[in-house]
Write a protein that binds this DNA or RNA. Sequence first.
DNA 1: CGGGCTAGTGTTAACGTTCACACCATGACC
DNA 2: GGTCATGGTGTGAACGTTAACACTAGCCCG
Lengths: 349, 349
Amino acid sequence: MSRGAEGGGAQRPGDGEHRPPVMMDVARLAGVSHQTVSRVLNGHAKVRQQTRQRVLDAMRELDYQPNSAARMLVTRRSNTLGIVTFDSTLFGPSSMVYGIEQAARAAGYFVTIASSRSLSRSSVLEAVNRLREQAVEGIVAIVPKDSAVDALASVPAGIALVGVGVGGAADVPMVGVDNTAGAELAVHHLLDLGHRTVHHVSGPAGWPEARERVAGWQKALAEAGAAEPEVLVGDWSARSGYQAGQAVARDPEATAVFCGNDQMALGVLRALSEVGRRVPDDVSVVGFDDIPEAPYLIPPLTTVRQDFGEVGRRSMELLLRIAEGEQSHHRIHLTPRLVVRTSAARPAS
Amino acid sequence: MSRGAEGGGAQRPGDGEHRPPVMMDVARLAGVSHQTVSRVLNGHAKVRQQTRQRVLDAMRELDYQPNSAARMLVTRRSNTLGIVTFDSTLFGPSSMVYGIEQAARAAGYFVTIASSRSLSRSSVLEAVNRLREQAVEGIVAIVPKDSAVDALASVPAGIALVGVGVGGAADVPMVGVDNTAGAELAVHHLLDLGHRTVHHVSGPAGWPEARERVAGWQKALAEAGAAEPEVLVGDWSARSGYQAGQAVARDPEATAVFCGNDQMALGVLRALSEVGRRVPDDVSVVGFDDIPEAPYLIPPLTTVRQDFGEVGRRSMELLLRIAEGEQSHHRIHLTPRLVVRTSAARPAS
DNA sequence: CGGGCTAGTGTTAACGTTCACACCATGACC
DNA sequence: GGTCATGGTGTGAACGTTAACACTAGCCCG
C-alpha cells in the first residue's frame, strides 16, 4: 500500500465534506440508540449479547473511533500524565522516560512530554504550564537541579506532582536512588582495597544528586579517618571528566578516583591512559550509573548501579497514589548497588 | 511552601463540590458575555482595550485555565502530535525525541509519546493506535526496523505520518541520514590511508540502516577494487562489538574496521586492547553516529557524524507539510560528515 | 436623511460524549 | 393479581468551548 502520495484525509473543501463517523452513526446502523453504543464501548453489563454484537459490527464497518475530546469533556478526565524532562544526552533521564511511559501505559494513561530547555526556574515552570494546558492528571518531573526543584515547589497544589532525581531534601514528593549510600559503597570499596584516600570528580554545583554523592564520599572518608582531597568539579560530561583526569594524573599521590557518573569516569580513564598511568595498576577508578557501555570501557568500569527503569516505574506508582489522594510516605529511596569490574584494584604498594 | 497536603484552589462558597472556574465565571466577574472572554483568549482584534483588560484581570483572579477538551471538541483540532519510539538505550532515538519535541513546541503543538516494546509489527501498530485514540494530528515514528516499517505502511492513510531511520526504501514519507554515503565516507577514509581492505561490523539483520551502511561499505570497497571480507554482524551494542572485535583481533590480516555505530566501535576498541593490538598502530577503527563520548574513547574515535537534533527538526517540518496536504518531496536525506580523530591512521607497512 | 460601513458586544446553536433518569417487558413472590 | 426487583433499552440534559449570526452605536457619504 502506498501512502503519502495519496491525499490521505485531506478533506479539501470540495463537495463531499465527509466527517468521521460518530456514535450516532453507529447507533443508526445498528438500529439502537447512541446510549447503547456508549454502553457497549464502555463495557457495561446490561446489554444483550446479540445487541452488543450488532453494535460491534457497526463500529467495525464504519471504522468508528470514539472522540476523545467529547469523552474528556464530560468525564472530566484526560487519562493523560505529563513528563517534564530536559534536553540532555545524559543516559539517566532518557532511559527513565521509557520506564515511566511503560508504567503509565500499564495503568491506562497516555503520556505527554514537555522538555525544559535549561532547567532554569522559568523554563521549568513554562514546561509545567504547557502540561497543565493539556489537562494532565499528574506530572513526573525529571529536573535534577536546584533551580528547577525550587520551581516545582511553587507549582499550584491542585495537581499531582512527583520529582525525580531532585534529591532527598526537596520539598516535593520524590523518587530517587540513595546517592549518599551509593557514594559510600564506592568509596568504601576503594578504601577496603587499601587506598589511603579517594579523590572525587563531582557533578556540577547546584545539582542535588552531585551534592549527595559528594556527601557520601565525605562521610565514607571521615568514617575511615582518611584525608579529604579537594573535589574536582565536573559537569557530568566526558569532556569534564577528561579535564579532571588530567588533574588527577598530575598528582602522584592520587591512587583512587570516585566519579559522579560514568561519562566522567570515561573521561578520566582516557586522561590517565594518555599520560601512561595505568588503570587499575596505578590509579583505580569507580563510576556511578552503570551505563550499558561500562563493561566495555578500558578497563571495564567498576561502578554504582542505578536502575533507571525502576525509578520510572516507582515514580509512576507514587504519582497515581498521590492523584488518588493518598497522603503518606511521599519519599522513595532506591538502594543502589556496587558492580565490581576491573577498574579498581588494590594500590601498588 | 509545602504542597501535597493542602487541597488547592479556593472555591465558590457552598462548601462542597468545588469546580474549577469556567469561561462563564470569568465573564460574570468581568461583566461581559462568555463570548467576549473567548475573544480575548484567542486574541481576536475586535475587543476594546479596556474590556480586554477587565477580562484578563478576571482570569488572573480566578486562576482560570481554559478547558482543552471543550476547545478540542468544537475546533476539531487537538494540537497534538505523536511520537512512536522504542524502548532502547541507543543514543540516536532518545536524542531525536528532544529535537522533535522542540520543533513541535515551536510550531505550537503538544507531543505525546507511545513506545513500542519490540518493534514487531503488532507492537508498532498498537502504539500507533494508542496515538490515534488520543486524536493526534500527525505521527513521527522512530522505528528503524523492517518489521516496524511494514507496519507503518499499513497505517490507514487518514493520518499524517513520517518515518525516521526507516531507510530510503521505505514506502512512507521519511527523514534520515544518508547511510550509504556515510559508510562510503568512512571506508574511503580508511582506504585512502593505505589500508588494503576494510572489515565491517554491521548492525543486525532486518534493520534498514544497518543494510544501507553495509551497502555503502561494499560500494566503496568495490570502487577501490578491494577484497570484501565477511561481515561481522552485531546488534548495535557494545557487547556485540566486543565479540566482533575479538574475531577481528584473531585475524592478522585485519588492519581496518568500520563499525555500524559508535557503541560497537567502543566494544571493538576494548577487544583489541585486551589482546594487545594497538589502535591505530595495528588496527584502525571508525564508527558511526558521533556520540558525545566519542572524543574521549581510547583512542578518540574517528566517526561519521549524524545530527540527530536536525533529524528531529526536519521530520517535524515534513510532518507539518504533509498534514497541510502538501504532496511533493516526501523523502529527506541528510548528509553525514566524517569527523576525523585518532582511531584511524595509515597501516604499519 | 437614509443607507452602508465598522467597532464592539451579546445570543444561540453546535461539537460528541456520558450521566441520570424514565420506560417497558418479564418473571418472581406473597 | 398486584407489587417488586431486574435485565434491557431509549430520552433528555449536561460538559465548556467556538462559530455564526444578530444587534447596537457611531460615523461617513452622497
